[in-house]
Simulated assay, not measured.
Amino acid sequence: MREIAVVFVLLAFLAHSAMGEEMVFFADDLYKAAATPELHASLVDPAVAPGGSTALKIVVANSGRVLALLPTGIQGSSLEASREMQEELRSVDALNVVATLTAKDPVSVLSGPATIPLLPSGTAQPVEFLVQVGEGAEGPYHLDLRLDYEHQIDVRISAGQASPLYVPANVSEEITIHAGGSRESFRADYARSELWPGENGTLTLVIRNLAGPAGNCSARLLAAPPFRASDQPVSLGYMQPGDLALATFWVEVGDNASVRQYQMACQVLQDGESSAWSSTIPLTVAVEEGQSIQIWLVPLPLILALAFLAWRWWQG
């Protein structure tokens, strides 16, 4: 039994090493989970108006997974073993999340850090920051978002009580906003999206001209993570007042996109210059049924083979 325990601990160590974490556990552990939170951030609406303050809503999501749940070989009661298995699964949850947004001229952040007390795996929570963009600013600007949090790396069960061990961690992401434009010259009358996490899809818009004649028009999709779109504009041609034009964009969706509604912005260009317009268009990212957090258990033949090798090594 001691040889098998050595194998299990080795497997857990390798799983944690693959995630870039050190292996830490109590001496009397019955189980060890190879798991950690994975935090990602996405901007709800990247379009901001210059010369004033705007409330930026950012969604923070946790897509952490339990990669392995391994017995250590140490004996304990069935009740303690069951309780420890359940508590070890909390290793993917993020606690005391503090989101801090910083920017450089001409963008300034007017509000302080935002907090999320608990962000379990598979969930998302919005945070808001008040930002100000300088008068006359136009184009994309990159902001830095730092997420500080705590997560469980081990837990001990004693007399029916759980005693978790927490460590601090952090991750940084780039948030891109697009400044410039009004929202009155054009309008999106129809939007259809066919987008799935980790896949390339399409977003189709029907754009209406609400103002005067506009020559050599084109449209560009302003996307923020977890989306990525080409910077190449889509031609709309010459548009009279009231005219409709069809624009289809290819969109790459990140693996960490969750099932919910996101918002993007589309910018119409006229004669190669910005038409001083941008419009926010909601779209839905769909995830197929049956996807869930995966718990990896070591196959029995592999366990037996590794146990045999460990026994041979132990015998010298």
Rank of each mutant, 00 (worst) to 15 (best):
G139D: 05
I303L: 03
V97S: 04
D29I: 00
V285A: 12
S235H: 14
S17E: 11
D29R: 02
A94Q: 02
V298T: 13
M239T: 06
P164R: 01
V298E: 14
F26H: 15
A12T: 07
L306S: 03
M264H: 06
L119I: 07
V24N: 09
G201P: 09
Q232T: 11
E199L: 12
C217R: 12
Q267N: 08
V155Y: 07
T280H: 03
V206C: 11
L203K: 00
V253D: 11
A219V: 08
G212T: 13
E135S: 08
Q161L: 15
L297R: 15
V9W: 09
Q267R: 12
E184G: 12
T202R: 04
A94R: 01
H40L: 02
N96S: 15
L297G: 12
F227L: 15
V234T: 13
S158A: 12
A223V: 01
A169Q: 02
F129C: 03
G134E: 05
N200L: 13
L147C: 04
L309F: 11
L39N: 03
Q291C: 07
L67I: 06
L10V: 07
L67D: 09
L56P: 00
V206E: 13
Q315W: 06
A224K: 04
W311I: 06
G64R: 05
E128P: 05
T100G: 01
V259Y: 13
P46R: 04
S218Q: 10
S258C: 12
E184R: 15
A55G: 10
A33I: 11
Q232D: 09
V44Y: 09
W314C: 07
W196T: 10
D243T: 01
G64M: 08
L79V: 00
K104Q: 10
E194D: 14
P197T: 00
P301N: 08
K57Q: 15
A229H: 00
N96I: 00
E21W: 12
P71H: 00
H40N: 05
L39Y: 08
R228K: 08
S218V: 04
D105C: 05
S158Q: 09
A223L: 05
C266D: 03
V287L: 07
L302A: 04
S279A: 13
A162W: 07
D93R: 07
P37Y: 11
P168S: 05
Q232M: 10
L79H: 02
A162R: 01
V131F: 03
A5V: 03
I116V: 07
M239Y: 13
A5D: 00
D45H: 12
G254P: 05
M85Q: 10
F26E: 15
L306D: 01
N216R: 14
L39R: 03
Q132N: 14
N62R: 06
D28T: 03
A286W: 15
P225Y: 04
S17K: 13
M1H: 00
A61V: 01
Q270C: 10
Q315K: 10
S278D: 11
R156D: 14
M19R: 13
